[in-house]
Amino acid sequence: MPVTVKWGNERRVTLPPPDTPLAAVRKSLAEYTHLPHNAFKLIHAGAVMKDDAAPVSAYNLRPNSTIALIGATDPRATLTHAPPQSHSERAIIDTIAAELHVVRASLAPDLTHFERDPTNHKEHLRLGELLLQSLLRLDSITAEPAWEDARKRRKDAVREVQDMLDRLDTIWASAQPTP
């Protein structure tokens, strides 16, 4: 069954038979993206596909469905045994840049698409949730007071994601009928 996987650019993939466990799909996508299998989330119709033992059919995928592959920017969010957080300014800047890359590559195009047709309530909820999750991840990044560059980049990243969230809410509000 052909589906679209959004990761950077959209990719068309064919899923294995419906009784195949999600773990096999995750492994295949990990090989394709060169990401560790536990370093990304799969999201379909606003829900995280987490049960790797469940068959693909449990996620109500249909031909031409879209799955968002969201790469984790904070390894502690997905690894069972988290490595110690790096305490260098460069590592913090790289973490911020990775989070922004994910937002720009996967959510910004979806927001632009939503702007053209702002009537899909599920898409509004999905985008709002994913942008909020990104804000929370950025908020969890701690930079030393002396690391002015890292603190500025974090502040700019938070502002950019918050602006996208505000834009989403403005688009949604303007599409609602006036009472």
Rank of each mutant, 00 (worst) to 15 (best):
residue 27 K to S: 13
residue 37 H to N: 08
residue 25 V to T: 06
residue 151 R to L: 13
residue 138 L to Y: 01
residue 106 S to R: 14
residue 50 K to F: 04
residue 33 T to A: 05
residue 60 N to S: 12
residue 2 P to V: 05
residue 43 I to Y: 00
residue 12 R to S: 14
residue 7 W to Y: 12
residue 1 M to A: 02
residue 1 M to D: 08
residue 11 R to V: 06
residue 123 E to A: 10
residue 160 E to D: 02
residue 160 E to K: 14
residue 64 N to A: 12
residue 54 A to E: 15
residue 45 A to E: 13
residue 142 T to L: 09
residue 128 G to W: 01
residue 179 P to V: 09
residue 175 A to Y: 00
residue 91 A to S: 14
residue 115 E to C: 10
residue 65 S to C: 01
residue 19 D to S: 12
residue 18 P to Y: 12
residue 39 A to C: 04
residue 88 S to R: 10
residue 6 K to D: 12
residue 61 L to W: 02
residue 139 D to N: 15
residue 159 R to G: 03
residue 92 I to D: 08
residue 37 H to E: 15
residue 143 A to S: 10
residue 116 R to C: 09
residue 48 V to N: 04
residue 128 G to H: 12
residue 135 L to W: 00
residue 88 S to T: 15
residue 24 A to H: 11
residue 60 N to M: 09
residue 169 D to A: 10
residue 143 A to K: 13
residue 78 T to R: 00
residue 64 N to L: 07
residue 172 W to Y: 07
residue 9 N to F: 07
residue 139 D to I: 08
residue 87 H to G: 13
residue 98 A to D: 13
residue 122 K to C: 04
residue 14 T to H: 06
residue 109 P to M: 05
residue 165 L to Q: 09
residue 29 L to M: 06
residue 40 F to T: 02
residue 43 I to K: 06
residue 138 L to E: 05
residue 61 L to M: 03
residue 112 T to N: 14
